[in-house]
């Protein structure tokens, strides 16, 4: 506790070295989550490594295969508004635009947000729906973990001690696919009671591909390939939707808390899924 320091390195190497040199140190990105937890006395880092000056964490790169690489220090606001996203990748900008409020979106970063895996946070489900991968850097190099594997348990991720989120790689979505994020919250800006993130591709009147992830309904975003498959080949009719929704609801493991009961959270999953499908109907007609 006596060695508390804040370091603001300019390179990723220096940041990692600093993390390594001081066990128990934590990375400071926008502060929206970490400082709130420090103020509440929930975390007491020995030292902080501020990432603000690490330029390599900021960039956005368009990949040759249509994918996008987003730096960990990308602010929610940027993801919400300055959209480089195409097709179903837009699930990310929809999710980012519903995080907290404009001021917090101006502070909070992609990396900072996902590093905590708050069950009510908006990015995790969106990243899973987008089939994104998380780029992790550590003393021994870089590794890439699928979003599904990255979120491990309540407030727990695949990050090991001394590792940082460097960024997120969002693969190209199918051409013509639609992204959407449907969030239910008590009031604007609250953590989600439950949310549905999805990417859907239509082929004529039926769904050719779908990827659904449920947020706010368990320790990690809930994604079931089986539920995706239930929609494929259908016209997203209420039967198919409710079957897929029920499957997801049964698999969900939501908390019972002041935001909502676990029963209610399960109950609204199929309903939010159906609503999300209805919400994207205009986009589908336009496509």
């Amino acid at each position: 506790m006596m060695t508390q320091t804040m370091i603001a390195p300019e390179t990723l190497e220096d940041a990692l070295a600093a993390m390594h040199a001081e066990p128990g140190s934590m990375a400071l990105a926008g502060g929206a989550t970490l400082v709130a937890m420090m103020n509440a006395g929930l975390v007491e880092p020995n030292s902080l490594v501020a990432l603000r000056h690490v330029d390599t964490l900021r960039g956005t790169r368009q990949l040759d295969d249509g994918g996008i690489e987003l730096g960990a220090m990308r602010r929610h606001r940027e993801t919400a508004l300055e959209t480089p996203f195409k097709d179903g990748q837009t699930v990310l900008s929809y999710a980012a635009s519903q995080i907290a409020n404009p001021t917090v979106r101006n502070m909070g970063t992609l990396g900072g947000s996902i590093a905590f895996n708050d069950p009510g946070a908006d990015y995790p489900a969106a990243l899973v729906a987008a089939n994104a991968t998380i780029l992790i850097v550590g003393a021994t190099g870089t590794r890439e973990v699928s979003a599904e594997a990255f979120f491990v348990d309540w407030y727990t991720t695949a990050l090991e001690a001394g590792e940082l989120v460097a960024g997120v790689r969002v693969p190209a979505a199918l051409v013509g696919s639609i992204g959407h994020y449907e969030k239910l919250a008590r009031i604007a800006g609250d953590f989600a009671v439950a949310s549905v993130a999805l990417q859907v591709t239509w082929s004529g009147d039926s769904i050719a591909a779908a990827r659904i992830a449920i947020g706010g309904s368990g320790p990690t975003p809930l994604h079931l390939a089986e539920a995706d498959d239930m929609l494929i080949g259908t016209g997203a009719d209420s039967d198919a939707l409710s079957k897929a929704g029920l499957l997801l609801a049964q698999a969900a493991d939501p908390v019972d808390d002041v935001r909502a009961s676990a029963d209610y959270r399960r109950k609204v999953i199929p309903r939010l899924l159906a609503k999300a499908m209805r919400e994207i109907a205009p986009a589908r007609e336009a496509a």
């Binding site: 009031i187 604007a188 609250d190 953590f191 002041v258």
Partner: peptide
């Protein structure tokens, strides 16, 4: 939206994160 909730004797939402008042939206 507003309600103070107790778990037995303990108020479990004594913060603005957990106790919600309306915003402009």
């Amino acid at each position: 939206t507003e309600e103070m909730v107790w778990d037995d004797a303990r108020l479990i939402n004594p913060s603005l994160l957990d106790y919600k008042v309306p915003t402009t939206l």
